[in-house]
């Protein structure tokens, strides 16, 4: 395979990967943030403590997170069919990625919030702030730098998830590496894809570090 043949395939694959990853990052990031905050504030003794909410979210996260993504993708099939209308192709994979990302990020969010100094929350309470105001104006802004780093960390995981899209007829860089590289013993294709993925990950990390530093105010 020549570069002229590979190049268009590479661009298409990169586009598909970015589409899957960015969708999962945005959707999963949003729901993950909500779930993570929900888990944190529902903790016993916390702002909106609720044993029921805490147990439900906690069990869900623990249930979903350890499942290897390729198995999760298959297991989620019935729900994917209801929501997306099909269990194959890039949209189906993207949906599964959004769900998994939400739960993974929820745990990252919760862990970062737990390590926040409870004194700041107490100070805000002492000033008469409502729980919702505290969540929006204290919790999230104060944990912003670690949240950004956690979100960056998530990017690598999501990129990893996108690699198995080929198994259910989706595209992307992972599919390209397997179909044109691994299965055809074409090491060049494999390594070109590896290189692209490494560059992607580096760029994401660079951007994440930059934003986190800006958020730190030190």
């Amino acid at each position: 395979m020549t570069w002229d043949q590979l190049e268009p395939l590479l661009w298409t694959a990169l586009g598909e990967t970015l589409q899957m990853v960015l969708t999962a990052m945005v959707v999963g990031g949003f729901f993950g943030l909500l779930l993570g905050i929900g888990l944190y504030v529902a903790r016993p003794g916390n702002l909106l403590q609720s044993r029921a909410l805490f147990v439900v979210i906690n069990v869900l996260i623990n249930l979903v997170r350890p499942i290897p993504f390729i198995i999760f993708l298959a297991a989620l099939g019935p729900l994917t069919r209801i929501v997306v209308g099909t269990t194959i192709g890039t949209p189906a994979v993207t949906f599964a990625m959004c769900v998994m990302t939400s739960f993974v990020f929820a745990r990252i969010v919760e862990q970062n919030l737990v390590s926040l100094d409870p004194g700041m929350i107490e100070a805000a309470r002492a000033m008469g702030a409502s729980p919702w105001r505290i969540i929006v104006t204290v919790l999230v802004p104060e944990a912003l730098a670690p949240l950004i780093l956690g979100f960056t960390f998530l990017f690598i995981g999501v990129l990893d998830m996108s690699a198995v899209a080929g198994y259910v007829g989706g595209g992307g860089l992972g599919d390209l590496a397997i179909v044109y590289g691994y299965q055809q013993y074409n090491w060049v294709v494999t390594y070109v894809v590896v290189l692209v993925i490494v560059v992607l990950a580096q760029l994401a990390q660079l951007l994440g570090n930059l934003l986190a530093r800006k958020a730190l105010h030190r």
Binding site: D117, M120, E142, A215, H217
Partner: peptide, 8 residues
């Protein structure tokens, strides 16, 4: 511990 908001 002052409990100031570090982000402000």
């Amino acid at each position: 511990q002052f409990n100031l908001l570090g982000s402000r």
